[in-house]
Design a protein around this nucleic acid. Structure first.
Lengths: 196, 196
DNA sequence: ATTGGAAAACTAACACTGTTAGTTGCATAA
DNA sequence: TTATGCAACTAACAGTGTTAGTTTTCCAAT
């Protein structure tokens, strides 16, 4: 054992804590080492690289997000579940800016391992929408639409693209967005029923 | 005049060309200098800083995007205009990945100048929606929802979060998303009419 | 209890960012 | 032709992440 009893787990935990407190999706190794009371290169006794550390934190972020969403929608059905999911999504992204930004800055398309780690994220939205009795293909489409709205909203708000009419209630905009999704979904369901 | 007749304008243009060709929202000064046939520090004879160069490219990106959107929706009304706007938006983001990413990575909330430069972006969507005869406040809300959907979709696709069911047609998802927005908007219009 | 070996800390250094200071050289205006 | 100024240059700094090589520290086996 080394002088300070540091482990890989503790390093990752400190990185998470750092990201949580700063709100940035990345933590500099310098800052991380400072907080752990060691010099920067010493970190490499516990992690292989920055990329690897990020991957570790990413997994935590995904797991944390999924748990949050599942807890918020447990026992709810259809529209109520959708609304709760949307609220919880917004809540997580606001409260854990750094983790959410990390989730949404992973170039998953390139790294096969990242893609796999991100899979649980998609299933959360799918689970909710599968209650409507749609075909698998439709669920996949609507789950994309749902996530697009949720992320698009948070992303633009975060970027500052919603602050131009700052007299305007953000929460109301969000309610309208979710209602819009539900109306669209209901319209689809109506068509489906009409076909039968 | 210097040896190579370089001007600030030419530097910015090369930066734009570089961003267009790489698809990244930033260009390294090293790469930029290399392409211009000079050494990195020489760039500072023409630009004040990286931030300033980015701002210049950002203004170009905004202007370019706005022109693109206006051209695509000229003469169209209501739903047709909305659909054309959405198609054009997607087209721009796909064709000019670097410029779009730059637009969507400006921390506008912090810099007052960036915010102002971004204003035209918002007016494009607003102009389309103002045709529906909604109240100013409603337009502002629905313009947020519209942009949230459009950006959310592109962003997630770009991140690779749509490639899990890659058998599934992306274009169809996009059509559903736009139709969802229109259905939601129509529902709002219906309510408004019912109130009268 | 002493010693050997492993694990983890350290310092020094490299490559890569953006950036500044100080110097050289070309080109146009006088 | 000369002089002024602009634009190129080299050298260097601070900041990233990272590697090599060295020293320290602790735990385990004798």
């Amino acid at each position: 054992m080394g002088a300070k009893g540091l482990t890989r787990k503790k390093v990752v935990e400190e990185a998470i804590a750092c990201i949580e407190s700063t709100g940035h999706s990345v933590v500099s190794l310098h800052e991380l080492a400072r907080r752990l009371g060691i010099k920067t290169p010493s970190l490499y006794n516990h992690i292989e690289s920055m990329k690897e550390l990020q991957y570790e934190v990413f997994r935590y972020a995904v797991s944390s997000f999924v748990k949050h969403q599942n807890a918020a929608t447990a026992g709810l059905e259809k529209d109520a579940a959708v609304r709760a999911f949307a609220d919880a999504y917004y809540d997580f992204a606001s409260t854990h800016k750094g983790l959410y930004r990390l989730i949404m800055s992973m170039p998953s398309a390139e790294d096969e391992r990242d893609k796999e780690a991100a899979l649980p994220l998609l299933n959360t939205a799918r689970a909710i929408l599968s209650q409507y009795g749609l075909a698998e293909e439709s669920i996949a489409h609507w789950q994309r639409v749902f996530r697009a709205i949720l992320h698009g909203f948070i992303s633009q708000e975060d970027l500052g693209y919603f602050y131009y009419y700052d007299s305007l209630d953000l929460e109301k905009s969000r309610k309208i967005a979710v209602q819009c999704f539900l109306d669209g979904l209901h319209a689809e369901l109506g068509e489906k029923r009409a076909e039968e």
